[in-house]
Amino acid sequence: METRIIVVTSGKGGVGKTTVTANLSARLAMEGFKVVAIDADIGLRNLDVVMGLENRIVFNMIDVIEGACKLPQALVRDKRVDNLYLLPAAQTRTKDAVTSDQMKELCDSLRGEFDFVFVDSPAGIESGFRNAAAGADEALVVATPEVSSVRDADRIIGLLESFGKTSINLIVNRVRPEMVRSGKMLGVSDVMEILAIDLIGIVPEDDSVVVSTNKGEPLAMTDVSPAARAFEKIAGRIMGKDIPLRDIDDLEEKGFLVNFRKLFGRRGGRS
């Protein structure tokens, strides 16, 4: 298949870009695709620890760009899952160590070698983000249902559009259905209405994410928690499977009847 290069971005920091990158990469590798996850957050690398590969790094992305090593030497192979690789960021350099053109060249050199290339973008809208987006064909925008995150996501979507990216999909992360239902938190439908881009998945708030990050073992590899299932579905949709987004209905019950049922202490009948 033709290589798909996907940038994972958000604008705001701490909304789950790295978690999404690690889990979708792992999941797609488990499905038999050859996948590489690139950490484009130069100077603040974290994808390595989230994937649990921090002890096996020898070279990094900047070494490849500067010609200090060959690309295959810098790729860290995941021993737990076949076909999964990490291209780490440099930790002791700054974002200025790479240009958009170099990043594009690097991404293009992976075409034909891999099925999927995920680029984990740094937060912000400066050069780091622009470089991460430079080589990508598609974008996944991660947002949490919070005012600041949605606002930043809107800005990022505008910028991606101005870069000429046409395939932009939204992941709403850390949704807390109870709070949405009780009117305390923005729902997925609210976020979608505001951002007006295609939704590719919803990830519920899940303690397992913290545990998996602590262990350095992406959820998708072992777990059957709600977040792991959500990543599995998103990976399926990326593969082109028709998996309906029925989560929205499960997460947010709406309408008169539902309210009526709630009034009498009954749930909508969905499991």
Partner: peptide
């Protein structure tokens, strides 16, 4: 949440959406 829904009061969810 229950009372807010019942009386259609301004919920934090609504104000977040409108402010955004």
């Amino acid at each position: 949440g229950f009372l807010d829904r019942f009386f259609r009061r301004e919920t934090p969810r609504k104000s977040a959406k409108e402010r955004l």
